[in-house]
């Protein structure tokens, strides 16, 4: 079992952390360098966590659990206008990031209004590429109930946020509803506001756990971090991608941020020590996000083995 953790510390000697994680059979998911500070998102075997903790202590770094690491969450607002940004949407996205998730902010093209709100097929498909979605709505319960049509066709769990208290039975298509975080014109700074952000993180965590539980019933042929590691090793061009996170992890696969037509064969040809290629154990298709490559690992029931 791998434990998702976040290491925050000085740049000096951070290589020791990376080396230890690799020696223990863990994975470094993301590396963010900010001048002399570094933030590492790590998956490490649970039984070896103590070793990493003592190294972090020695380096005067901080090691915290990042329950959302290795997942991608869409933060969806009705549009990207001043009415929704920067306050509530950015606060939620940043808070999810602090707990290890990779968040993508999305504004719908025509998501505004009560009667006129719509979502199109492309937007739905793009949200479905994520592991969970957070829909940010406003302060009127009539509108929040009416806007259910926006996420009715989304297959990933949807956490809805809004201002007023609404009973769960009134929003049957939402995974959960988090109240007290409707439209605001200031940053979340009061304890109650931060508390609401915590409740969103907890709710997204529960949504992801539900997906993990359903994956566990028919496990994936291999784990997404392992695919990420092999792609990074065997398709070195990915390191030259301008994206801050060239390979984004999902619960069921990865998104490789390279042009689909030019690199799909190279990604298909990635081989593992067991002798199988990625093309045999995963579907490789164009992502709805830009021109990227979407890798979806097949479950054991389709390939007949797990490694």
């Amino acid at each position: 079992m791998l434990e998702p953790v976040m290491f925050t510390g000085g740049l000096y000697k951070h290589d020791l952390v990376v080396e230890l994680v690799e020696d223990l059979g863990g994975y470094v998911l993301q590396k963010n360098v900010t001048q002399t500070e570094i933030i590492l998102l790590i998956l490490v075997p649970t039984e070896d966590l103590a070793m990493l903790q003592s190294l972090a202590k020695e380096l005067r770094g901080e090691l915290v659990r990042a329950p959302l690491a290795g997942t991608e969450v869409a933060v969806v607002t009705p549009t990207l206008a001043i009415h929704h940004l920067p306050h509530s949407a950015c606060d939620i996205a940043e808070y999810l990031r602090r707990h290890g998730s990779k968040t993508n902010m999305m504004g719908l093209a025509r998501g505004v209004g009560r009667e006129i709100a719509q979502i199109n097929e492309y937007e739905t498909a793009l949200i479905n590429e994520h592991d969970a979605a957070v829909f940010i709505f406003g302060n009127f319960q009539e509108c929040i109930k009416k806007k259910e049509s926006l996420y009715r066709n989304i297959t990933v769990p949807v956490v809805v946020t809004g201002g007023p208290q609404i009973e769960a039975k009134d929003l049957p298509y939402a995974f959960e509803y988090v109240s007290s975080i409707g439209r605001v014109a200031h940053r979340a700074r009061k304890a109650t506001e931060i508390g609401s952000l915590d409740r969103i993180v907890e709710s997204v965590g529960r949504a992801l756990d539900k997906t993990r539980a359903s994956i566990a019933k028919d496990p994936l042929t291999t784990s997404p971090p392992r695919v990420m590691d092999s792609v990074r090793e065997q398709v070195p061009d990915v390191e030259f991608s301008y994206s801050p996170l060239p390979i984004a992890l999902n619960l069921t696969g990865v998104r490789v941020k390279l042009p689909y037509d030019a690199y799909k064969d190279a990604v298909k040809a990635v081989t593992f020590d067991e002798g199988v290629s990625l093309g045999e154990i995963a579907t490789i298709k164009p992502s709805r996000m830009k021109d990227y490559i979407l890798v979806r690992i097949l479950p054991a029931s389709e390939t007949g083995f797990v490694f």
């Binding site: 406003g138 302060n139 009127f140 319960q141 009539e142 201002g163 007023p164 208290q165 409707g182 439209r183 605001v184 014109a185 200031h186």
Partner: peptide, 23 residues
């Protein structure tokens, strides 16, 4: 004043209007 059961919306819009006018 907001029609229907929207006391929360009315309260929040009051804060919102104050914030924007103050900004």
């Amino acid at each position: 004043e907001v029609t229907g059961q929207e006391e929360f919306g009315a309260k929040k819009y009051r804060e919102l209007i104050m914030d924007i006018l103050q900004d």
